[in-house]
Nucleic acid binder design. Structure first.
Lengths: 125, 125
DNA sequence: TTTGTATTTAACCATACGGTTTAATACGTT
DNA sequence: AACGTATTAAACCGTATGGTTAAATACAAA
């Protein structure tokens, strides 16, 4: 599988994202990583293997411990891919801004209108 | 499934990423979207359903066509998640910079050394 | 109403995923 | 050598994924 797909599919699981969050504050052993989760150590071990295959973590050897360390490089690539679309969502916000400004203008107009004719009935604000 | 997982797993497929790229230059019908791919229309239809479930596209109705349009909002959220780790890869680059500068310093030292003793044999550049 | 075009649904298949439980492995300690 | 702890591997299960082909649906045009 290509790296980007590997990265995104590794990120597509809340447990794995939580593991990365944990590792962002320092390396940890498998046991330490597994502690907060309501699932077996073996399940966590599998998640770690997925993260390792995606190169989101690297693992060392210290006696019987295999400490995991976060490697952010694939995140950088994922970020670069997503950034292609940044303009797109910013445009959308621009349009929303424009729309809100238009609404505001209409509202002001309505107010002016209302002050001229006090008979208008407003059911919904 | 939570939105972020939905988004990342939708992005974890090169065909779907290519579809999004296509849609970034404007809405398109299913047939138009499918044309460049070496797979059945039905397969593309499935991919579109995945993208729709992740709210990465929305679909209209025009006679018998169901044009697809890119919706970037989930990408914005994915981007926000990844950005948490930005500092991390920047740090790594800082360290890489430091390492490269160190290498350079050593290289300069080596050169100085070499110019003093021309007997050194270099097998690999 | 028949025909043609656009698209989805259904049924199927192989493989992957996320979890389990039960071994097996690797290392440190006694 | 035997035990305890850390971790992985193996076998299994239900469900999801990514693809196929064949059938159904929706609409336009003849």
């Amino acid at each position: 599988m290509d790296r980007l797909s590997l990265t995104f599919s590794a990120l597509a699981d809340p447990t794995r994202r939580a593991i990365l969050a944990r590792l962002s504050s320092g390396a940890a052993s498998v046991n330490e990583i597994a502690a907060p989760f309501a699932m077996s150590l073996q399940a966590i071990s599998k998640h770690l293997k997925v993260l390792e295959r995606a190169q989101l973590i690297s693992r060392g050897k210290e006696a019987q411990w295999r400490p995991c360390e976060l490697k952010a490089e694939p995140l950088r690539e994922a970020d670069a891919w997503i950034k292609q679309y940044r303009q797109m969502w910013e445009e959308r916000f621009d349009r929303l801004d424009a729309y809100l400004m238009e609404l505001q203008a209409k509202s002001a107009q309505a107010k002016a209108s209302a002050s001229r004719s006090t008979k208008a009935k407003k059911k919904n604000t």
